[in-house]
């Protein structure tokens, strides 16, 4: 392990700005979040960034590190440093508020836009819904429900970059899990929401989302599921009706 300082380029500014270089001492087991924290506490208190749990559970610390979206608290410097250089920038495809903090509103709005929320028709007076845990639908849903909305997949997607209306991998993944929720009663609206130019058929299975997801979710798989479902619904109809 080298004893030279890390040369860390950090994006300062907003949509316009520049990379500013800071020298950060190396430590064993150092994460990129440690580096950003050091810069803000010891070198430049005006640096803005987000974090919360710092143990890989909340997804708040997601940033672009050496060109790739990652959770900075779960990225060891030793794994990704190039010589002694690091480049830290805000998440792509989202407006920059300041420095490393992005505006996540469009990300969550698209979640709503894909009807990525649950609505049932039972009340507290009805019996529990009985969902078989080993049923096909439940297993498909389970494969995608661990998503915590960190935005890494969204920031990695080239289709999001080229089609501003594209709902994106996270929203579509969530829509797919709800499509497989037998209690949900908005399936037609959901299918309508994820069809169209901005929906699932815009995905080219590039797989950057699946590669990048820190929770090993495969939005590519979920979107493939939606593609089939919507196509069949448009041509033949689905169990909830025809599109």
């Amino acid at each position: 392990m080298s004893n030279t300082d890390l040369k860390v380029k950090v994006w300062r500014g907003a949509e316009q700005g520049e990379f500013v270089e800071y020298l950060v001492p190396r430590n064993p087991n150092q994460t990129v979040l440690d580096v950003v924290t050091y810069i803000q506490r010891k070198l430049d208190p005006t640096l803005s960034y987000r974090f919360a749990c710092r143990v890989g559970m909340c997804g708040s610390c997601a940033m672009t590190v050496n060109g790739v979206a990652r959770w900075t608290c779960r990225t060891h410097v030793s794994q990704i440093v190039q010589g002694d250089a690091l480049e830290i920038a805000p998440l792509n495809n989202l407006p920059v508020i300041k420095d490393l903090a992005t505006d996540m509103r469009e990300f969550f709005n698209k979640w709503k836009g894909a009807v990525g929320f649950f609505k049932g028709d039972k009340t507290r007076y009805d019996d529990f819904a009985k969902v078989q845990p080993d049923s096909q639908e439940r297993q498909l849903a389970n494969a995608g429900i661990e998503c915590i909305g960190c935005g890494v997949c969204y920031a990695s997607c080239e289709v999001v970059e080229s089609r501003p209306n594209y709902l994106g991998p996270a929203a579509l993944n969530r829509a797919w899990t709800l499509t497989n929720d037998v209690r949900d009663v908005q399936q037609i609206e959901r299918m309508r929401a994820v069809a169209g130019d901005a929906g699932c058929h815009a995905c080219h299975s590039q797989g950057s989302c699946t590669e990048a997801c820190p929770k090993s979710i495969a939005p590519t798989a979920s979107i493939a599921g939606l593609k089939k479902l919507v196509a069949r619904a448009a041509v033949r109809g689905s169990k909830w009706g025809k599109l």
């Binding site: 169209g196 448009a234 041509v235």
Partner: peptide, 10 residues
């Protein structure tokens, strides 16, 4: 448009 996209994909 959505139905059209779906049919074209299919």
């Amino acid at each position: 448009q959505g139905v059209m996209q779906a049919k074209l994909w299919y």
